[in-house]
Design a protein around this nucleic acid. Structure first.
Length: 472
RNA sequence: GGCGACAUAGCCAAGUGGUAAGGCAGAGGACUGCAAAUCCUUUAUCCCCGGUUCGAAUCCGGGUGUCGCCUCCA
């Protein structure tokens, strides 16, 4: 069975057939590094992180490129506001970005190119467009001539004349058509600039992604991804540029993550509800944030609120409890064969198949989580009813959860359960007290440990302990 | 105005023709010295009205509602 990907270009799910079997070239539009990223940005990066990991799990050799946009109007304006240079601004927020997404367990891309380090490639691409007649120079600026590209509007499913009708025309435009967009902008006083055949200036926004993806992948790439709002005009323009220069599609599959709303409202500066990752990390466990984001399908709109994070946390705890219990059980040495074992074995096998089938179907993380919860119930029943346990079965189940977590990363699954001699000694004392029905003593010990953030659970096979999460 | 998406229990959320996964919260029960955890039971006329079909949450038409894009906002 092939992996299916919803391709924005065709508006259907298609079988994933990369240019080279079992290789996937993957480009995700990265941040403009002028500010801290917000939770909506984070959704995009988390979703495509999981998709990347799943492709790897399915034996694809994935090469991921994610750019930094470190030169554009927002960069220039913000640097001016803060009285620093654009490169200083970029350095600061690249660092902030990397630390934010690392906290969210997003693995770094293989290559992280910056626009300003690829001006040579950008200029080369613009020259090609001029040579091929897809661009024109106008008073020091260079524009893409959208009228030359018949498929312009295909990705966003809009007709050119309709786009023209809806377009806003700025006074003093140097463009021939309102749909044309800047490839190169003439230098303005006090702005960073580079030399070019058309005079000093800087790249337009859209050209960098076309230039860098071509530079690193040479050929049509397999997956190009980003937030839904990039469909138009950014990705539309990238397609036009690459076609104009090389007469080839930029990407085979276009993937777009849905919006994230705050308390059912669009996140916007005017509403004052932009929530930065930095701020949210102070209030929430990053794994809870990941879990919430993965609990909906990546293309659906997703709501964000503290209450929903709490719901996610509670659900996540259920899985974590089960894992912790399995880790404790793993320390035993017993084996035995019985009916419960066959049941769990069958459930495990089914869960693996269902998990893959859910994820193969356009990365349906919500359904996959359902599978994981179903299996957790089976695991809990096994633990409850089948002591002593079959160690092989226990570790096989744990391996499934390790594979799952290697993709989703919403749990903590250490190799072995944590040991603490002092706690063990206190538990032993308490067990003795309980044997003698000295409840006051036993409860006192439990309270003492609770005050230290350690929660005890008495099971038929002994007392176990766990750390109560300190985060609120 | 043009284009598009979505509408499933108190909350979140899967499910694209065959009779509603899963999670959170709630209720009852089992287990426990008490807890905690766990297990069992329980909670849905799938926005409305038509139509197609033996059969629709799923397809078609209409309506209502929410949202997005058309503004270099992920």
């Amino acid at each position: 069975m092939a992996i299916k990907i919803y391709n924005t270009l065709s508006r259907t799910k298609e079988d994933f057939k990369p240019g080279t079997p079992l290789k996937a070239t993957f480009y995700v539009c990265g941040p403009t590094v002028y500010d801290y990223i917000h939770i909506g940005n984070a959704r995009v990066f988390i979703v495509f992180d999981v998709i990347r990991r799943y492709l790897q799990y399915r034996d694809f050799d994935v090469k991921l490129v994610q750019n930094y946009t470190d030169i554009d109007d927002k960069m220039i304006n913000r640097a001016k506001e803060q009285g620093i240079t654009v490169p200083e601004l970029a350095a600061r927020f690249i660092e902030a970005y990397e630390s934010d997404v690392a906290a969210l367990k997003v693995r770094p891309a293989d290559i992280k190119p910056r626009a300003t380090e690829h001006v040579e490639q950008i200029v080369g691409l613009i020259q090609k467009l001029l040579t091929n007649g897809y661009a024109y120079v106008s008073e020091g600026d260079v524009y893409y001539d959208t009228s030359r590209f018949a498929d312009y509007g295909k990705l966003s499913q809009q007709k050119q004349d309709e786009l023209v009708a809806g377009a806003r025309v700025e006074p003093g435009e140097k463009k021939r058509s309102p749909l044309d967009f800047a490839l190169w902008k003439q230098r303005k006083e006090g702005e960073p600039s580079w030399k070019s055949p058309w005079g000093e200036g800087r790249p337009g926004w859209h050209i960098e992604c076309s230039a860098m993806s071509t530079h690193y992948f040479k050929d049509t790439l397999d997956i190009h991804a980003g937030g839904a709002d990039l469909i138009f005009p950014h990705h539309e323009n990238e397609i036009a540029q690459t076609w104009g220069a090389d007469s080839r599609p930029l990407a085979r599959y276009w993937m777009h993550a849905g919006y994230l709303n705050i308390e059912s409202q669009k996140m916007s500066k005017s509403l004052g509800n932009v929530r930065t990752v930095r701020e949210l990390l102070e209030q929430h466990d990053p794994l809870d944030l990941r879990f919430l984001i993965l609990s909906a399908h990546y293309r659906s709109p997703l709501n964000f609120s503290a209450d929903l994070v709490a719901q996610s946390r509670a659900g996540r705890q259920r899985l974590q409890e089960m894992i912790d219990n399995f880790l404790v059980a793993q320390d035993g040495a017993a084996t035995r064969q019985d009916q419960g074992e066959e049941k769990l074995l069958a459930d495990l096998k089914e869960a693996k198949a269902r998990f893959i089938s859910a994820m193969d179907d356009d990365f349906n993380t919500a359904e996959a989580l359902g599978v994981v919860f179903d299996l957790a119930r089976s695991c809990n029943i096994y633990l409850k009813e089948n002591h002593p346990y079959n160690m092989e079965l226990i570790s096989e189940a744990l391996n499934f959860y390790r594979d799952f977590n290697g993709i989703f990363e919403v749990l903590e699954i250490p190799e072995k359960q944590e040991l603490d001699n002092e706690v063990s000694a206190l538990i032993a004392r308490r067990d003795k007290a309980r044997e003698n029905k000295e409840w006051a003593t036993s409860d006192k010990i439990r309270d003492e440990l609770a005050a230290r953030g350690i929660v005890l659970e008495d099971t038929p096979h002994g007392t176990r302990w766990k750390r109560k999460d300190c985060l609120q």
